[in-house]
Amino acid sequence: MKLYLGLVHHPIKNKLGELVTTSVTNLDIHDISRSCRTFGVKKYFIITPFVAQTELVNEILGHWEQDKANAFNPDRQDALAIAQVAKSIDDAIAEIEKIEGKRPLIAVTGANFDSFDGDVKELTKKMEVLNMPCFLLFGTGWGLHQLALDKAEFKLSPIISKNSDGYNHLSVRSAVAIYLDRLFGE
């Protein structure tokens, strides 16, 4: 299964449902890269249109390519090597098309959708039937804005605990790790 992952910082909703751009966080860069590398994700896109945030991400990624940092923690560089900044979801899709020679199936995650297309088993089955790579998008802030959802061809069912009392607000780092384990774990 060929899976690409996108952490979307734009277009995102704020708590009022308005279109916003969220800030990139250092922990998301490192931790999600490590999960992606562990589970065999082909490339991890950090999606932000802001030049200052793009420069920050590239500075962080570049730091771990330097000889001293790489020598100190080569595992970190190995994980971060699959991370890349994209200015938009469409730019990331175009990059995947260049790599794969075909457009990926766009799947989205979120706990607050009106409807869902299925769980990871149904997503995997759809990818196999269509013989397509998948670009799995995760939102920041209060979730993916409708502009992002309009690109989706598959909405994943949310992560729900059997012990939950209705509370469902995982960190994006945790959600990524859980979904990747469900897709690729034993």
Rank of each mutant, 00 (worst) to 15 (best):
M1L: 09
Y4D: 05
V8E: 06
V8M: 12
P11A: 09
I12D: 01
K15I: 09
L16H: 15
G17A: 12
E18D: 14
E18M: 12
V20R: 02
V20N: 04
T22H: 08
S23G: 07
S23H: 10
S23D: 07
S23T: 12
V24Q: 00
N26Q: 12
I29S: 09
H30R: 06
D31T: 10
R34S: 06
C36T: 02
F39K: 03
G40M: 02
K42I: 14
K43V: 13
K43M: 11
Y44I: 10
F45M: 12
I46V: 15
F50H: 14
A52R: 14
E55I: 08
V57F: 00
E59L: 07
I60M: 04
H63W: 06
W64Q: 02
E65H: 02
Q66D: 15
A71E: 13
N73F: 12
Q77I: 01
A79L: 08
A86F: 02
I93W: 09
I93T: 14
A94M: 06
E95V: 12
E97A: 15
E97H: 13
E97P: 04
I99R: 14
I99F: 10
E100C: 14
G101F: 07
R103I: 11
V108P: 12
T109P: 11
T109H: 09
T109I: 13
S115E: 14
D117M: 07
G118S: 10
G118V: 13
G118W: 14
E122V: 11
M127K: 03
M127G: 00
E128F: 07
V129W: 13
L130G: 00
P133D: 09
C134H: 03
L137S: 02
F138H: 00
F138I: 03
F138Q: 05
G139I: 04
T140K: 02
G141I: 04
G141T: 08
G141E: 04
W142Q: 08
G143A: 06
G143S: 06
L147S: 11
D150Q: 14
K151Y: 02
A152I: 04
F154A: 01
F154L: 04
S157K: 15
I159Q: 04
N163M: 12
N163E: 15
S164K: 05
D165W: 01
H169Y: 10
L170G: 06
L170H: 13
V172M: 12
S174E: 02
A175E: 05
A177R: 11
I178M: 09
L180G: 00
D181R: 11
D181M: 07
L183C: 02
F184Q: 06
E186H: 14
